[in-house]
Design a protein around this nucleic acid. Sequence first.
DNA 1: GTATAAACGAGACGGTACGTCAGGTCTTTCT
DNA 2: AGAAAGACCTGACGTACCGTCTCGTTTATAC
Lengths: 202, 202, 202, 202
Amino acid sequence: MTSSSTGAPSRPAAGRPRNSDTTALILQAALDLGEKAGFGSLTMEGIAAHAGVAKTTIYRRWPSVWGIVMDAFLAEITKVAPLQKRPTARASFKASMRLLAKSYRGRQGKILHLLLGQAQLDEKLRREVTTRWVVPRREVALEFVRHGIETGELRRGLDPDIVLDALYGPLYHRLLVPYDDAPITDAYVDSLVDTVFRGLER
Amino acid sequence: MTSSSTGAPSRPAAGRPRNSDTTALILQAALDLGEKAGFGSLTMEGIAAHAGVAKTTIYRRWPSVWGIVMDAFLAEITKVAPLQKRPTARASFKASMRLLAKSYRGRQGKILHLLLGQAQLDEKLRREVTTRWVVPRREVALEFVRHGIETGELRRGLDPDIVLDALYGPLYHRLLVPYDDAPITDAYVDSLVDTVFRGLER
Amino acid sequence: MTSSSTGAPSRPAAGRPRNSDTTALILQAALDLGEKAGFGSLTMEGIAAHAGVAKTTIYRRWPSVWGIVMDAFLAEITKVAPLQKRPTARASFKASMRLLAKSYRGRQGKILHLLLGQAQLDEKLRREVTTRWVVPRREVALEFVRHGIETGELRRGLDPDIVLDALYGPLYHRLLVPYDDAPITDAYVDSLVDTVFRGLER
Amino acid sequence: MTSSSTGAPSRPAAGRPRNSDTTALILQAALDLGEKAGFGSLTMEGIAAHAGVAKTTIYRRWPSVWGIVMDAFLAEITKVAPLQKRPTARASFKASMRLLAKSYRGRQGKILHLLLGQAQLDEKLRREVTTRWVVPRREVALEFVRHGIETGELRRGLDPDIVLDALYGPLYHRLLVPYDDAPITDAYVDSLVDTVFRGLER
DNA sequence: GTATAAACGAGACGGTACGTCAGGTCTTTCT
DNA sequence: AGAAAGACCTGACGTACCGTCTCGTTTATAC
């Protein structure tokens, strides 16, 4: 969301540089307010006031509230729940999904389901979520599957995309389709992975 | 001079009765506008203007825009994609999910992902979706699973909830988590059901 | 500035009628604030806040701050300084101009020079000032001159417009062209009228 | 408005000297923009952009938009309409006022009435107008009057200030009080001077 | 020549106010 | 009592300029 891309390091961008403390201040304010009053009721004015920053300063960095939330979410989640590589695909997914489920039980979950919710209504945000969150993770996960097929852990002929949908789909289903509001436990993840893997193995 | 002949006991409700044409008019206006300008940009004022109706008239019937959309969605979907009972669970799900996938490829899909999106932000709508859409369908589907276990088609010890998540999860994952925007084809559904069922059968 | 013009009294306009107390409240707030902090620093937001009224409520009545000030000014000035008809033209103008000078020494003067100042920058306001303030008064005054010519008090061949410019011009000159900030006294008015009339009489 | 040159030529001020082309560029940009979009809508940012100059460069020279306009006005008007000394007071005023009326029919008039308008709202500008435009001209004109009294052209006992008000007042009245938007013609000036002078002469 | 000092362009920044939009409530008259 | 119309308060929107600031760069005098 932030203008980035450096490439040629040549000129130092001319003009007074953006204050990165200010950026951090805004992100923090957004998280604080979201935590306190609900991420659904975040407003530009509220964030600006809480961060002690002018609205224009925010608009210079992000085009919408959701841009901010997106950045805040990504900054946290990559630290907290990176994909886990293990000897077998089954172990890799179990570990990765347990970690993911854990963060989803906390603040990240609260944010993510709002983020994905809002992405349904907002085309620009949807693209942002795709390119910055879904695609990068999916690519790593696809590698797990392909490797599993090579080693013979998984049977040949499987469509790796379907495999990922079968594994992660249920997780997001629980997160996004309102049913019984039960949290996603480690036991649920284990049970899920085991059930699905029965259909995947040779 | 025909005597009105109320016949019906109770009360004639006193005062001017609600015009049911008006109700239909509003629903139609909501669908028209949503189709044209995107369901995400529906507003009470817009719907009222387009339907040629006063705002109060709408508020008397629904508490929010999403209430209207919810009603419009349910009215259509139950006609179009009822659950399909077949001799085997596998066949039942294949048929039901194909039908569902088909409607999701059209207007219903467009509405549903907005509805689920909005439900993430709006607690009241979330409950509405749960009780009027998710739970009723889920109960029927659970019956399919239990029956499959009884007949021996599915192995004992399966958690029926996990089964449903494993089947429907991927569908909603495709619908809600933005990835490649590929539509959900019948082939995808077949492939998915077959893959998952391998892990479910005896 | 307010939408007015009734004409056909028939229909009572449908819908909730405007609250005339609210209108008065806004005008009063504008005058209060102007008096306190200077009419030059009036803002819509300030007036709204001080009147305890929503901005939209004001915008429904006036298109700009100056529209409000205009209305407030006219409401006062017509009460305070109506044109004075006397037996002779000289006496009529002396009386009228004394009264006008007196109000200009007070709040009306403060407002008027801002109003005329702003009218230089704002074409719409300029027209408003012309039709609601300048023209009506000028027409009455022209009548004084014409009558003076008929009775023989003033010589024939005078251009009535020039006469009015010669009389009122100096007054507005003092008001609008900054020089020594001396107030316009009754003595000044008398001296002015006498000097000018020497050139007007037979 | 510009930082005054101290007179003593001593030090060349150390550091990079101001570029006088830049100053001219800004003035020109202000006039261009004013001519095109109306002097009332001039902004610092607009002028800076149009002149291809940084805002700070302008602020280093003038404290406000109106300072610029003031300088631009004065630079033109003193060239175009200096006071005219003639043998008689009547002839001096006729010539001077004709010349003034002529410039007021063009761009100078457009600017001046905005300048005087704005001066009503802005105390600093008001003083600026007084000291740089009104007072210097008024002093010369007062001399005309005093000389006329000495030579016996005008009667004794006249208050010179009232004389000037009587002569220039109508001109500014026409310029500033919106009435019929008729331009100020030479014929009008002649007629006005003759009428007023009838009351001034012995 | 090399400091030093100011001009200059660029753009960030905190502010204030703008005029608009939609929400949800209310008041009025008509049906 | 329902319905249409529209006033009303509320809150947020995104934008425009303001005047100040912080940079890096340029251009002149002074040492």
